[in-house]
């Protein structure tokens, strides 16, 4: 044990090394310890109080969760809502993003201001405000209502990032296409669009992922008629044994991981860091 005394380690490896390692350990335990613990729990069958590790491993809880007929419906709901909302917001936001990036028009700053307002108003307050209106128009508990909420969440993102991508395209490239006789639409489709595609893809990806994990708005507007994986997770955490929650967490994470990997493969490593800031 003499070799393991802290002072000995400190002087053997040097001050910098020890501090570096300490920071790394603290960081890793705080941010990844809980996640690793969850990763362990998905294979647990019995996990009772005094034991740090599960006393019996197995896949019993997977069978339990996957055996629920409701779950498949919930997963489908989640994917469907995310898909519809992302497509709608692409159709609505891309033209606006282009206009903001390239064209001058009156009321541009007012337009931008109204989008920032979306983010300034507390989300939960906005949801209740919309909820009151939804009751009046009978949109409460409908798929349409939930999709509207999800599209609203994507707005800022879908306008800000693609408009940045459009702005980065050199205007001469478009002009060159126009000079050789391409119409405005063709220029857009075969010059502007391909260059801006990575930025648009990032925005779409983040919107899709955001929609998958959106819980509070769906809970407020759609529950109990429209259930997504995220809203079911509330019940899982509050009412079920810990292992069920762990399995469900992993199910919730799987689409995220797949999409991130695919996007990284398609558009390269740096693609992710751009969107993180939002």
């Amino acid at each position: 044990m003499k070799h393991l005394s802290p002072r000995r380690i400190f002087y053997t490896f040097g001050k910098k090394y020890v501090i570096d390692s300490l920071i790394f350990i603290v960081f890793f335990l705080f941010f990844f310890g809980p996640l690793l613990n969850t990763a362990m729990l998905i294979f647990a069958e019995r996990y009772q109080a005094p034991h740090l590790l599960p006393t019996r491993f197995g896949l019993q809880w997977w069978c339990y969760i996957l055996g629920q007929p409701e779950l498949l419906q919930v997963m489908l709901n989640s994917l469907l809502i995310a898909l519809i909302a992302t497509s709608i917001s692409l159709v609505i936001c891309l033209p606006a993003a282009y206009a903001v990036a390239r064209l001058q028009f009156k009321g541009k700053s007012f337009f931008l201001f109204s989008f920032l307002l979306t983010n300034a108003f507390p989300k939960i307050g906005l949801y209740t405000a919309i909820g009151i209106l939804f009751y009046r128009f009978h949109l409460m508990g409908t798929l349409t209502g939930v999709v509207i909420i999800h599209v609203l969440n994507m707005l800022l993102f879908m306008i800000w990032i693609p408009s940045g991508a459009f702005q980065k395209i050199r205007i001469q490239q478009e002009e060159a296409a126009r000079d050789v006789g391409a119409g405005p639409l063709r220029t857009f489709l075969s010059i502007t669009m391909p260059i801006a595609l990575p930025g648009i893809a990032v925005a779409a990806m983040f919107s899709f992922l955001g929609s998958l994990e959106e819980a509070q708005g769906t809970l407020l507007v759609g529950f109990p008629e429209v259930k997504t994986m995220a809203t079911s997770m509330y019940g899982m955490i509050l009412d079920y044994p810990p292992m069920a929650g762990a399995v469900f967490s992993v199910l919730l994470l799987i689409p995220t991981v797949i999409i991130l990997l695919v996007c990284r493969k398609l558009f390269g490593k740096g693609i992710l860091s751009g969107g993180i800031m939002m």
């Binding site: 609505i92 033209p95 206009a99 001058q104 109204s114 906005l126 209106l133 609203l152 707005l155």
Partner: peptide
Amino acid sequence: CLPYLLTLPAFLLVMGFIVYPIGNT
């Protein structure tokens, strides 16, 4: 009119589902 046409859908969405509900609230 092009910029206004391009931004119209997004603008209507913001007006209808953000500005109006907030005003109503």
